Simulated scan of single mutants.
Amino acid sequence: MDNYGGHIGQGRARDSQARRDAVTVEIGYALCSALFLAVVVFGVVAGPALAFELSDTVQGTLVASGATLGAVLFTVRVVSVLNRFAREGDSTDGDQPSQPGRTNPDS
């Protein structure tokens, strides 16, 4: 039995479930923050075209530019958040406590 009152090996199952949960939360954060960024950028670039009477050419250019820039920034944001999360996950080996001065319960 381990410190949690379960059988040996259940700690690893809890760790893998915690890791899956962390990945799910990080993916959700990446998508939500990227969507927010894309909407704000689209609004800033295409907003004047939708708010004011502009020629069809200028209006089309602003809307297309806003959509393109929003899509590019959406992709860049998702990739950068998930890469940062992956790098942080690789740097921790799981055997050391997460905070300095704390001891590992297995020690």
Rank of each mutant, 00 (worst) to 15 (best):
Q59S: 15
V45P: 13
D21Y: 06
F74R: 03
L82T: 03
R20S: 15
F36D: 15
T61E: 07
F52P: 06
D90P: 00
A49G: 10
G60D: 10
P105T: 11
G28I: 14
M1C: 12
D56I: 03
Q96Y: 05
T75H: 03
G5A: 10
N3I: 12
S91Y: 00
E53W: 08
S65Q: 12
D95V: 02
G60H: 05
A34Y: 11
A71V: 14
S33F: 08
L73D: 15
S55L: 04
S98V: 02
S65W: 14
D93Q: 03
P100Q: 09
Y29H: 06
G94H: 04
P100A: 07
S91K: 06
R84S: 12
D95K: 04
V45H: 15
G70R: 03
R14K: 02
A13P: 04
T61A: 07
V81G: 02
G70Y: 10
V25Q: 11
T24I: 06
R20L: 12
A38R: 10
M1P: 13
Q10F: 03
T92H: 14
A18F: 06
P100L: 09
D90M: 04
V81C: 07
S55V: 05
R84M: 08
I8Y: 01
R77H: 14
Q17A: 13
R20T: 13
G70Q: 12
Q10N: 05
Q17L: 14
Q96D: 10
R14T: 07
D93G: 02
Q10A: 03
T75S: 12
D56Q: 05
S16Q: 05
A67K: 04
V23L: 08
A13Y: 05
G11K: 00
F74N: 03
E88F: 01
A46R: 02
S80V: 00
C32V: 08
G66Q: 13
V45S: 13
V40P: 13
V72N: 11
A18N: 05
S107P: 07
E88I: 00
A13L: 10
R102P: 07
G89F: 15
R84N: 12
V79I: 15
I27V: 09
P48M: 09
A49W: 14
V78F: 10
R20P: 10
I27E: 08
T24W: 08
H7C: 02
D2H: 07
P97W: 08
R102A: 12
V58E: 00
V58I: 15
V41T: 09
V72C: 13
V39K: 01
G28D: 13
G28Y: 15
G70D: 14
Q17C: 09
D106H: 03
R12Q: 07
Q17N: 09
E26A: 14
G6L: 07
